[in-house]
Design a protein around this nucleic acid. Sequence first.
DNA 1: CCTATTTTTGTTAGCGTTAACAGAGACGCC
DNA 2: GGCGTCTCTGTTAACGCTAACAAAAATAGG
Lengths: 334, 334
Amino acid sequence: MAVHGPAMTDVARLAGVSHQTVSRVLNGHPNVREQTRLRVRAAIAELGYRPNGAARALVTGRSQVIGVVAQNTTLYGPASLLAALEQTAAEEGFAVSVGSVRNLDHRSISAAVERHLSHRVAGIVVIAPVESAGEALERLPKDVPLVTVDGDPSRPVPLVTVDQVAGARAATQHLLDAGHRTVWHVSGPTDWFDSVGRIDGWRQALLAAGLDPPPPMPGDWSAASGYRCGQMLARMPEVTAVFTANDHLALGVLRALHEFGRRVPDEISVVGFDDVPEAAYFIPPLTTVRPDFDAVARASLQMLLSQIESGTGGALRQTVAPALVARQSVAPPR
Amino acid sequence: MAVHGPAMTDVARLAGVSHQTVSRVLNGHPNVREQTRLRVRAAIAELGYRPNGAARALVTGRSQVIGVVAQNTTLYGPASLLAALEQTAAEEGFAVSVGSVRNLDHRSISAAVERHLSHRVAGIVVIAPVESAGEALERLPKDVPLVTVDGDPSRPVPLVTVDQVAGARAATQHLLDAGHRTVWHVSGPTDWFDSVGRIDGWRQALLAAGLDPPPPMPGDWSAASGYRCGQMLARMPEVTAVFTANDHLALGVLRALHEFGRRVPDEISVVGFDDVPEAAYFIPPLTTVRPDFDAVARASLQMLLSQIESGTGGALRQTVAPALVARQSVAPPR
DNA sequence: CCTATTTTTGTTAGCGTTAACAGAGACGCC
DNA sequence: GGCGTCTCTGTTAACGCTAACAAAAATAGG
């Protein structure tokens, strides 16, 4: 089908130059007379010429596309990251190809990466928050620019990550500062590095205060699991402060507490993580930790681009500090 | 950088055949001896050969990539749609390239589409919920397969859409059935077709019941704007039932009502739209309308693929019916 | 005004794949 | 056995672009 659009030679003919000159104009090569440049531009506009990315990718061995591998782009974190990544990439003239993956196991990730490689993407960003992803990445061809986000800190792979530990510590400390004797934790799935980091930070804050951390309650990021944990917490009179690994868990907890007639923040204080846009409208407005997804996206892309340009694949590492957002779900214990 | 991987000729040499035979094996051409096929496959595996999509795209004039243009992929609806689209596309062997757009105006959309076209995508899906998008699409080259999602029903462009009107009607009717004398509406931005459809459906249901629709209150999809509208609604004693254009608006409304001490559903019933995963954990659990994003994604892709294959660009139309999900935010008026 | 240098333009050769055609075997049938 | 007809495989030529080199034009310096 598709009547193919004009090619470079058509533009060249119309402008009365060689196709190479057109190529030069297109790529901003310096040695082109101004007058020629204008004539070429006019011809491009007149024909509605659009350069063929496939041809360019073929000859340069590299397309202006960045592949992103992510799991559940419906979750707020990944979705924000993806959007920010896409924006940043667009500014640099790159398109973003998503390869989402049902499970973050070895095979799925490798398959997604393979798909990207056969499209000759310029580089790959893997949002790989779980253990199994790390393994898949180790056996990747070494010559493809790669950055992982929220991945395994112990692997020698370029990594950009939100400082989960610091965020969790801040959240926990905030509760301790309010006067609570201890802080309970509803965690995310324990095979996610995000969860591990947040558990760590929470634990560190308690230990630093000379407290013995209570057992963390494992959730799965969903409000549903938060609700289940909340039902237990509500029955435990000694609980006065809860830090949840994300805002949706907090929502579930809030609802369970509400059902049991335990008032927030009067009886129990709650702090979340993520600062989803709705958090300010929970009942009560949720104190939470806001990771800067834009900063993460910018850092990742920068890291990737510098690899693409330089060709070196150093195992860099960059951490973005999150900020505590205080709202009304925290109060001193009675 | 990048030591280029093996090409088809390398595989051919190893297998002792011509590169064309390798191509045939790769594309599942029937006339290849079984023995040869196996030899070629072995060579492919041994070399870790990966076909070069750019070269293929160049010669066939078409890549295995589908471009998606969307605005705010952080919103639940678009994000779900994108994820579903990506899944479905992957099953068909297509990658998805996202071109998100800050504003849904003419220029931004055209620019995003241009970007996709210069990568020679096989087709484009535009999640174009606003008026201005429609215009941008009309002047697009006619020969590129295109599907719009939640776009302008009055334009001759292939369109897949959630039946907003039916959903809104169901929501409103549900409230009327519960015994309410009328239903107020907090709408989305009025330049979104989604909003218009939902306003329409709400109005239709009221008119069909012989009621005079009160003025809709315009929001912007956010909990913040829902909260502002809720503050007004809370002050109006005659209000007993509210239908909000999405769940986040509903969250804001719930919070405002709660602050004013107006109990939901005892005093005021609320119905949302979207069924975000958290809706079941709002206080109280939110009755809402659930659009089937998977179905929309499947329909869109099917429509796009049939255009790609057949080459015809019929102005098809497909509508996906949403379902009411009854929870506890609705009760009869006192 | 002529040569040495620089700037600007053109020419040629691929990049890795598919399409179109051509050639070589294998097979059946008279 | 010879000949047409399949089936299988190979050869050649694009696709649209950039890189590398070559040539022409402009500029400078004496």
